[in-house]
């Protein structure tokens, strides 16, 4: 059943409508919500939403609970290849919980939060942006880690990144829902503007496993991988100091040693290498730049150090 979460008339003969699909079977009222499409350039969640919905359609008898799928919180952004909401300055994921008395976007965010609140678990699926590729991971802030890490481990991701809380992140959907008692996990995977089918399949297996653990799924599940939890690890950041074109020579997922050559920043005009990018620590490359043009400061890679590893 497709339901309207929010609908607001636009200037000329059209409405901005946020929709969800409810899939329900059995007497169990446990509710899992899958939300995605907050950023219009992040598309991995679109395929995942399709996979979950079509699989449930084909195996409805094994579902015992409620799945709500919200494929596009920012439909105009997806439709126009725009990360934010077109004609609105603020990132949608900095406007939650919204308010009924504010701007159009704030009103929409308020309706979304009202609709999602009360879910037993919510999975908020993001891709990376167009610049970086990420391994499937769950990101959790320190204050919610104790509650959420057990659920994150069920999701078949490679990595659970527990990060410090920041005031600016208090206006995210995940923070809003977690502070209202709806357990919300933020997934990041893949790269912007693309679909990585193997990652979608990996998370799909994790969602089924989570549903099984929640008592919502009576069918078969695949074994899930044990993620690396960031506690005890450090993350090394490799940023460009020069401007030019980044050409990597390491691959995504590679294990590197401190000082290893990761790639070059080149100048096409002078034909010079303007910077040799080196690993800042030992570890696994879990983020790698996809978009070649870089300025000083552009992130080239993130490296997850082994436990006890020290950055020089």
């Amino acid at each position: 059943m497709v339901e309207t979460v929010a609908s607001i008339p636009l200037a000329v003969h059209e409405s901005l409508t946020i929709q969800k699909r409810r899939i329900q079977n059995g007497k169990n009222q446990t509710r899992l919500s899958l939300v995605t499409g907050t950023h219009g350039d992040e598309l991995e969640g679109q395929y995942l939403a399709y996979m979950i919905g079509s699989f449930m359609d084909a195996h409805m008898d094994r579902l015992n609970g409620i799945i709500d799928i919200y494929p596009a919180l920012n439909p105009m952004g997806i439709d126009s290849i725009t990360r934010g909401i077109p004609m609105f300055d603020l990132d949608m994921n900095r406007v939650f919980p919204g308010t009924k008395r504010g701007t159009m976007v704030e009103v929409i965010c308020s309706s979304i939060v009202d609709d999602l609140s009360g879910s037993d678990v919510c999975i908020d699926v993001h891709s990376s942006n167009i610049f970086l590729k990420e391994i499937p991971q769950v990101r959790i802030s320190v204050p919610t880690a104790k509650t959420l890490v057990p659920y994150a481990k069920m999701l078949n991701v490679d990595f659970v990144w527990i990060h410090d809380a920041a005031t600016v992140l208090e206006s995210t959907l995940a923070h809003t829902l977690n502070s209202r008692g709806t357990k919300t996990l933020v997934v990041e995977m893949g790269v912007g503007m693309r679909i990585t089918k193997e990652y979608c399949q990996q998370l799909f297996d994790g969602v089924l496993n989570l549903m099984k653990e929640l008592g919502m799924w009576k069918g078969e599940t695949s074994p899930v991988r044990e993620p690396i939890i960031s506690e005890g690890h450090k993350v090394g950041f490799v940023n460009s100091d020069a401007a030019g074109i980044f050409v990597p020579c390491a691959s995504f997922g590679d294990t590197v040693k401190q000082g290893d050559h990761i790639g070059d920043v080149i100048d096409p005009l002078t034909s010079k290498v303007v910077e040799r990018a080196l690993a800042v620590c030992d570890g696994m490359i879990f983020t790698l730049r996809e978009y070649p043009v870089v300025y000083g400061g552009s992130l080239l890679a993130r490296i997850l150090q082994p436990v006890g590893g020290e950055k020089s």
């Binding site: 607001i8 200037a11 901005l16």
Partner: peptide, 8 residues
């Protein structure tokens, strides 16, 4: 000149 509903 163009305005959406729920615009301040």
């Amino acid at each position: 000149p163009l305005i959406n509903a729920k615009t301040v």
